[in-house]
Nucleic acid binder design. Structure first.
Lengths: 199, 199
DNA sequence: GTCTATAGCAAGATAGAC
DNA sequence: GTCTATCTTGCTATAGAC
């Protein structure tokens, strides 16, 4: 076997450090916000000098886009995984909510950046990121479409209610509190019409 | 009557321009975020030079605190107003939700800054703003306490669900869409146990 | 209470060596 | 692919005149 690759140690000291760069950017964007995070600090976290990052990304906003892409990829993957089995519609929605919360709360920084750090100025970058998010949220459109809701119910408002509550959880969730599965179960318990217990 | 005050024209050109300064700060913090908004731009919007604002506030973060205080004052006032009458508990909650949404969505920039621009670094400033917000949210704790929910229901999660959905509405609401009252009614319709219609 | 002028610094980004 | 060195710009904040 030809040894074309160097061994990948946890902290690469030479060679392509793009993964570390993305991780550092996600963490800084998450903790300080996009505007307050500095390219110099991100570079230092990634173990490189500030000038070096421009080999990988032509600008700070392109770095944000890359973090978004990876974050959307991860949360889409996590939610799709739990939807594979055959469950009834309410159980599927609850599972998707739990997976969304896990990716957001325990899964780390990428998903949080996706939720919180949408650029405010209109432009191509912003439009791309909105498109990513809309494609992801389409999963929930389908899940809610499948629910046996009353015919007069607005499924759009139902989705906005749920996704709003889920996404806002970033602002109050603390590690060590209720796990994501419990939060999802609680939320579902308020939304799902009562099943009368059979005696 | 002694004329100790100059007449207050809509655009004051001399004298104390602190109100314009607060308005401009709220608007910039809202539209660009705290970090991306610049003191120079805020000063220009307020019709003064950058150096002049430091007569009113010793630092940018103190300006943010002042905007928060005014925002909390306005949204608390708006919600308290609609709770004055004697209504049943669900109707009171719905009215409070509608008032919260109105302040947030149609009411302008101050309330949005309160919701979105909490400083991330720990410190006295952040703690004060959290205290303001907690005092406001206590209104909803009381409203939800009064609801006839099943004994096993977690009122805390019920509140987090509602306030999350309300606060997140900033991200999708567009002027000209459903009015806040309609949004609140829709949300309540999913949360309130079904009343069987009497035939 | 607002002005002018500027200190002091950190930001994003670039050029060219290695 | 990374480094060093640097350009340019914009920022918060201050000092002192009016």
């Amino acid at each position: 076997m030809l040894a074309t690759n160097q061994s990948r140690s946890p902290v690469q000291k030479r060679g392509n450090r793009l993964p570390q760069l993305l991780d550092a950017a996600a963490r800084r964007f998450c903790e300080q916000g996009y505007d307050a995070a500095s390219m110099r600090q991100i570079a230092e976290d990634a173990g490189m000098k500030a000038g070096s990052m421009y080999y990988h990304f032509p600008s700070k906003s392109d770095l944000l886009i890359a973090v978004h892409e990876e974050g959307i990829r991860r949360i889409t993957e996590a939610v799709s995984q739990v939807l594979k089995g055959d469950k009834e519609p309410w159980a599927k929605l609850q599972a998707a909510m739990a997976a969304h919360l896990t990716a957001l709360l325990d899964g780390g920084t990428y998903a949080q950046v996706v939720i919180r750090e949408l650029p405010r100025e209109p432009g191509a970058a912003r439009n791309r990121l909105i498109e990513y998010r809309d494609r992801y949220e389409a999963i929930f459109i389908d899940l809610i479409e499948a629910l046996p809701l009353p015919p007069e119910a607005s499924r759009r408002h139902f989705r906005l209610l749920i996704l709003g509550a889920l996404n806002w959880s970033q602002s109050w969730y603390r590690a060590g509190g209720d796990p994501p599965e419990e939060i999802a179960a609680q939320f579902i318990s308020f939304l799902r019409p009562v099943k009368r217990s059979r005696k």
